[in-house]
């Protein structure tokens, strides 16, 4: 009779379902399958899939590897706000680079080559951070204790910003990093 009273037909589960409802259910089901299939399709044929290569780590272990990378690959330095030197480390095509997320900066500045794939190792020294590459708009969660190895191929030369988009405290809005693509 109504949705707030018990069903008027006691054997409501034996009532037939109208054709139009069946049709809608079928459409919803098939559409769900298509969306499911799209994710699989993209894993096989798509060019933008988030890497599964992840290692458990510790902040000090990751920092040591990153410092070694910076020491070996720094090509120049830039001056920060307070005159501090920020290294610019070039990741050789096909090579590995490290990016530290910490309160409240991305370290170091990275330099890549357009069209050349590199592996960027991401991890956090403290809280959760968010790797938000702009204006490309790729967003990846960065979590302490996990080293995430993401293969990236920049498609256009330019200067890119890494915005932190996971709230990490009072200096969160100033946590801006940089990637150069030559």
């Amino acid at each position: 009779m109504s949705a707030i009273l018990p069903p008027s037909e006691r054997l409501w589960w034996k009532q037939p379902i109208a054709g139009v409802e069946w049709a809608w259910i079928a459409i919803a089901f098939v559409w769900g399958m298509i969306m499911f299939g799209m994710m699989l399709y993209w894993h096989i044929y798509g060019k933008q899939n988030l890497s599964n290569e992840v290692y458990k780590t510790k902040p000090e272990m990751f920092a040591a590897k990153a410092e070694k990378f910076i020491a070996e690959n720094t090509i120049r330095t830039e001056k920060g706000l307070n005159g501090e030197e920020i290294p610019v480390a070039k990741i050789p095509p096909g090579g590995d680079g490290y990016l530290i997320a910490r309160l409240w900066n991305w370290h170091p500045i990275l330099e890549l080559e357009a069209g050349k794939e590199v592996k960027i190792h991401l991890s956090s020294m403290d809280y959760n951070h968010g790797f938000s590459l702009q204006p490309v708009n790729i967003n990846i969660q960065v979590i302490p204790g996990y080293e995430h190895v993401v293969k990236m191929t920049p498609i256009k030369a330019g200067t890119y910003a890494i915005v932190c988009n996971e709230y990490c405290g009072i200096g969160h809005h100033a946590m801006l990093g940089r990637i150069y693509v030559k």
């Binding site: 920060g80 706000l81 920020i86 900066n105 968010g130 938000s132 910003a161 915005v163 932190c164 988009n165 996971e166 709230y167 200096g171 969160h172 809005h173 100033a174 946590m175 801006l176 990093g177 940089r178």
Partner: peptide, 14 residues
């Protein structure tokens, strides 16, 4: 970004 105080990034090095 969500949960972000300043889209002008005042005080950022870049």
């Amino acid at each position: 970004s969500r949960r972000h105080w300043d889209m002008a990034f005042s005080g950022a090095p870049f």
